[in-house]
Simulated assay, not measured.
Amino acid sequence: MDGATAEAVRGAVDRRESLSGLDGFAGEIDGRLVRDVLGRYPLFSEADDPTTWGFDPNDLANPDPMPAGHARDASGDTELWTLPEPDLYEDGERAVATVREAIVDSVDAVAGSPPIGFSGGVDSSILAARLDGPLYVGGFEGSHDIAAARSAAAALGRPLRVVEFSHADIERGIPEIVAATGRTNPMDIQIALPLYLVAEAAAADGHDRLALGQGADELFGGYAKIANAPGDHRVEAGTVRGAARETVRTLPQQLERDVLALRAAGVDPVVPLLADRVVKAALRLPGEWLVDGGERKVALRRAADFLPAKLHSRDKKAVQYGSLLAREFDRLARQAGFKKRMDDHLGQYVESLRPE
């Protein structure tokens, strides 16, 4: 069992408790496979034989991803847990206080001093303010993420390790990400590759874990598609809160990709903002405590009052854009002869570098 003891998982199964305080798990128990409701740990079985399984798809001939919140055995998949729908907070001060307590307790509970993937945004700054591990940022020279991380690290009085990317990193990294995750979608590659390269640097420095602020944008309303609901074509929901819940349900696929990429680089992710207690607090937030006018992640920013004031309002760009990796990825594709006028020119570029 990955992430928890078999006894603890058995209790969550028996109670059908989706957020039981275990903060994620995946593996076999009592003759069937189980994966937690947010899919915080990847799990696969052979497509035609669920008794043959593993945490790495490369260990299987024909891996079939295990859906989050389900059990799997010879009879098929059975849903055990769904995302809860708790009553919403009616008092704003109570909402912020509960979120603050949840994030502080979850971050402070992280054992040791893992390095932190640091973009300079509010999510990673919460980790950096409370954990002692070294800060790592990755990107191309002149990228937004490197500039923001330098500014935020200075505000926190922390040293910063800058991992500068190169075109060679992209060219060698694409087949490595494809091999690790089994994915060839260019967007998946562009998101996973910056994480992979930073994790590689941390592993080379002797670390076997990397703390990340993953989950905060989904849980607390950090995406434009949540703020723009119901007018954004990327979500079906008719409200900000509905769009946030819809986005939370995309986490299992995202986390599968990211965990596999990080493990291939030599580290395991540490994601305290995806702890059950944080998820419980976030799911109770009404829409106005997710997005208020032009401000996103309202409750999280208010809760992070232990940060320097200049960091409360910090926004961040998606990692593939903030690091400039997406721009340079496209540049390399065009230099290799895959022009924008071609159908799926980035996908064709990925295929050209795919391992035999």
Rank of each mutant, 00 (worst) to 15 (best):
L60F: 01
A74I: 15
G54V: 02
E90K: 11
P42N: 10
R40A: 00
D59N: 12
P84E: 08
S45Y: 03
D108Q: 15
L83V: 14
R32V: 05
D36H: 02
R35C: 10
N62C: 10
T78G: 08
P67D: 03
G92C: 04
F55L: 12
P63V: 07
G92Y: 01
P86A: 14
V37F: 00
S45G: 03
A102E: 00
R72T: 13
V34P: 05
G76P: 08
D87T: 14
F55S: 10
L43M: 12
D56G: 07
I103H: 01
D64A: 14
R32Y: 10
H70L: 03
Y41C: 01
P63Q: 11
G69F: 02
S106R: 06
R94E: 09
A102P: 01
I103P: 00
R94L: 08
D36T: 01
V107D: 08
D105M: 11
W81H: 03
S106A: 15
V99K: 05
A68S: 14
D105E: 15
V99M: 04
G69Y: 01
T78K: 13
V34T: 05
D105N: 14
L60S: 04
G54E: 05
R40V: 01
T78E: 14
E90S: 14
E85C: 09
P67T: 08
G39I: 05
S106P: 06
R72G: 07
A61D: 06
V99H: 06
P63R: 09
S45N: 10
A47V: 10
V107C: 09
D105V: 07
P63A: 09
A97C: 09
F44G: 06
D91K: 09
R94A: 08
A47P: 01
P57Q: 04
S45I: 01
S75T: 15
T51N: 12
D108L: 15
S45P: 00
L60R: 02
A74M: 12
E90H: 11
T52A: 02
D108C: 15
L88K: 14
D59L: 11
E90G: 14
T82D: 14
P63D: 08
A74V: 15
D49Q: 08
D73S: 12
M66F: 07
L38V: 11
D36C: 07
D59C: 09
R35D: 07
E46R: 03
D36N: 02
T51D: 11
R72V: 15
L83K: 10
D77V: 12
